[in-house]
């Protein structure tokens, strides 16, 4: 989680660039964007580790419920997945608006991405509460610990993403965002899409393949 917080700082470093200057770099790409990609490369190993832990403990359910079609609420999780995919679309539209310098649509799409993200997070809170009521506590079994750790890590990533989005949105409202800083939006977007593809993976491997 802490890394994600730090990359937040990265993403916003774009604020600091002198307006309008695009600095000469060896790759032709800005340091901030390159740093974000480097960071995302590292995140693959993080989620890989959590997913492997989950796969290792998938059937180790002790006395508690296990991963099965009747336990997971597939219709609801599918709706959640749609919400997150939709937020990816609004995110990319926000970036596109930022590149055109279209402040109005930038604000609209940023806010709607954050709102859709919040719907996803509320869905996760809902789902966790239902699971706990159904008897799957954090300490119930290695499966439950691994499941909550993996989806919880993802949820924390989403939440951090929403905070980044809202901060960007408020900065835009306050006029702190220079029109030339579309890159900040792009970098927040990279993070957001990454969180989305992690969910694409989790949804398939944990829910649908159960």
């Amino acid at each position: 989680m802490a890394e994600a917080v730090l990359d937040h700082a990265d993403a916003h470093d774009a604020h600091d660039a002198h307006e309008g200057h695009v600095h000469k770099t060896n790759t032709g790409m800005s340091n901030n964007k390159l740093a974000m990609w480097v960071f995302l490369g590292s995140e693959c190993l993080l989620f890989g580790g959590l997913i492997s832990t989950y796969l290792l403990y998938r059937h180790n359910i002790q006395d508690g419920p296990g991963p099965s079609e009747e336990f997971f609420d597939i219709p609801f999780t599918s709706a959640s997945s749609f919400v997150l995919l939709m937020s990816s679309l609004t995110m990319v539209l926000a970036h596109s608006a930022a590149e055109r310098g279209d402040q109005k649509r930038l604000k609209i799409w940023l806010l709607s991405t954050a709102l859709l993200g919040s719907v996803f997070v509320s869905g996760q809170i809902y789902e966790f509460t239902v699971f706990v009521r159904e008897g799957l506590g954090w300490s119930t079994s290695p499966f439950s610990s691994a499941f909550y750790a993996l989806t919880g890590f993802h949820g924390v990533h989403v939440t951090i993403g929403i905070i980044m989005l809202l901060s960007t949105f408020i900065s835009t409202l306050r006029g702190r965002m220079h029109p030339g800083n579309a890159e900040t939006v792009e970098i927040v977007g990279l993070y957001w899409h990454f969180v989305d593809i992690v969910w694409v993976f989790i949804f398939t491997v944990i829910y649908l393949a159960a």
Binding site: P75, A79, V83, S122, Y126, I162, L166
Partner: peptide, 30 residues
């Protein structure tokens, strides 16, 4: 502000989802 925003929205929404029926939760979220 951002954190309070997320917390208020997510908590309110999840209360609604918990109050309605299983099918209702899917409909509400969608």
């Amino acid at each position: 502000m951002a954190a309070i925003g997320v917390a208020v929205l997510a908590l309110s929404m999840s209360r609604v989802l918990l109050a309605v029926s299983v099918a209702g939760s899917v409909i509400v979220a969608s």
